[in-house]
Amino acid sequence: MAKIALPLVWIVVTGLSIAGCASTQKNILATQESQLKLRTIQSRVFETGDSQQVLRVTLATLQDLGFVIDKANESLGTISGTKRSGYTLRMTVSIRPKGDHQIIVRSNAQYNLATVEDPEPYQQFFAALSKALFLDAQGVE
């Protein structure tokens, strides 16, 4: 009986390990929402051609929202930050020129271990960024 039981246990253990690996490796690029829908809720177009200003104001907005900046790169137009307030909220903002007078700002957030796919937090972020860009353009410190 023991002769049969031991190999059976090994088969089950090996099977479970392989299944575990498969499920962690399978869903690396998976999201709940479609690629197009995600891009739509995570992007806004701003009427300015000044990418330096947009990046600098993004840095200030993230700091206003309680983020600490993790990385920033002017050439690539990317900024990453993390907010720690009992939870961990990571955010990456990237900008891309659209013609000479518009800039597309894309942001994506991760709350603890989950990707944020709800439109509302992005609307709130863009509302804060729009306000800051407007004030900056008016020369308000």
Binding site: L65, K83, A114, A128
Partner: peptide
Amino acid sequence: QSGIPKNALVLSHEAVENR
């Protein structure tokens, strides 16, 4: 599964003071 807190990306009243 509870998601991101409602005000996580809203400017708080203390934002100006903190700045």
